[in-house]
């Protein structure tokens, strides 16, 4: 029995290790919101245009989230409030933003 529990634990650790930072730290929270995570992405794109500027704005907001620097509507902020400051390191945050960009970017998706 102990062997089986041990094996299951190892499997869980392995699976969670293969999940990216974005999947582990971003997707779960956004799943609970009525607005999908891609809508936030396109709001950023609408305001900041290029990859560098979008990522820079996101990084800035995640590290210092305020009502003023948020790109979502006042209604959503009033309802869900401003998110908490991220606990992730800069490297982990960059990695998560890279995955986010690659997942929803417009480049090479238009026909």
């Amino acid at each position: 029995m102990e062997k089986i529990v041990g094996f299951l634990l190892i499997c869980i650790v392995c699976v969670s290790a293969r999940e990216s930072t974005y999947e582990r730290h971003c997707v779960p929270c956004h799943k609970e919101l009525p607005v999908k995570i891609d809508k936030f992405f396109y709001r950023y794109v609408l305001k900041y245009s290029s990859e560098t500027e979008v990522k820079h704005a996101m990084m800035h907001y995640l590290k210092n989230p305020t009502k003023e620097s948020s790109i979502i509507s006042d209604g959503l902020i009033n309802r869900f409030g401003v998110k908490k400051k991220t606990m992730l390191s800069d490297d982990a945050l960059s990695e998560a933003l890279d995955t986010y960009w690659e997942t929803y970017k417009v480049f090479n998706k238009l026909k």
Binding site: Y48, S49, S50, E51, T52, E53, V106, F107, K109, L110, K111
Partner: peptide, 22 residues
């Protein structure tokens, strides 16, 4: 995902870093 086309003209869009989007 279909880029809007018009027979009267051709068009292209670029981001702020001047990279061609389409």
């Amino acid at each position: 995902r279909f880029y809007p086309r018009d027979e009267r003209f051709n068009s292209a869009i670029y981001d702020s870093a001047l990279h061609e989007i389409f």
